[in-house]
Write a protein that binds this DNA or RNA. Structure first.
Lengths: 141, 141
DNA sequence: TGACATCCAATGCGCGTGCATGTAAGTTTC
DNA sequence: GAAACTTACATGCACGCGCATTGGATGTCA
């Protein structure tokens, strides 16, 4: 039983690694090439964008966004800085708690997000529906 | 059907991200803390070690190792340099093709690998057998 | 043999990340 | 209300990564 478990676990891990690397590499490449967005940056837009729908009024606190993604607090801070410099997002002080920052999509940010969404979805469908299609990518090692 | 596919794909991707991040973060932390090894470094030892068994004579070319892992050629080169500095691995010229380098485990490298293997396996079992156990890690975002 | 393309590995470089720390603001305790 | 603690975010720093380039070794073709 031990050996059996080992084999299963190793195989499962290999499979997870394969899917993760192929998918995230292609996501990164496609989003960068077509929309000038890193994957982390897109993920922030995704969190803001999917809640906001068509009106650009949705706000989220940094802490809440952090809780939704696998990114350290410092990395998120810098990612948001990049998005802010690109004009896709604005920081706004919180009325109640002046330690906190609200984050909002700008119209330009919403536009960029909507443009990138199909690219994101397409890569996911490609790699997660047909395992055979998710062959080793040519870039990203 | 389109919406259904989308939901499935997004859920599947979230799940993959969760498992990948939790597992690789804990692997990294455990291997670093208990055996002073990075994950990439361990993976190189794994490729060399599992083929070599008990005799330390197994050789592999850089290119072949690269093909087995998700690491760029340059990253592998530096990872091997670190392993070499730590005395866990030796580079040796290839007889047939002097462009290539053979890589070998040193006795110390084999020992380190054997010591780290149970740690590696334990983390894999923890995160890949019982999904509930793979809760969000406290470190690594 | 000489010129050119190919292949393997190392290295310069910039970037994004996590950890540790700093700063400011809120909370608790007395 | 002052001191001690906690929380939210930014920043200094070191590190590992991928990309592009380099350098050396091989193969190919005339």
């Amino acid at each position: 039983m031990e050996a059996g478990t080992d084999v299963d676990v190793c195989t499962k891990w290999s499979e997870t690694l394969r899917v993760y690397h192929n998918t995230s590499c292609e996501l990164e490449n496609e989003l960068q090439a077509k929309h000038d967005l890193g994957l982390s940056e897109f993920e922030v837009l995704l969190i803001l964008g999917r809640a906001c729908g068509e009106q650009a009024g949705y706000k989220a606190r940094m802490k809440d966004i952090e809780a939704e993604m696998y990114l350290s607090q410092s990395a998120l801070s810098r990612t948001v800085t990049r998005l802010e410099k690109a004009g896709l997002v604005t920081r706004a002080a919180c009325d109640f708690d002046r330690r906190a920052n609200f984050l909002m999509l700008t119209p330009s940010g919403l536009e960029r997000f909507e443009a990138a969404k199909p690219t994101h979805r397409a890569v996911l469908v490609k790699h997660l529906t047909d395992p055979a299609a998710s062959a080793r990518a040519e870039t990203c090692a």
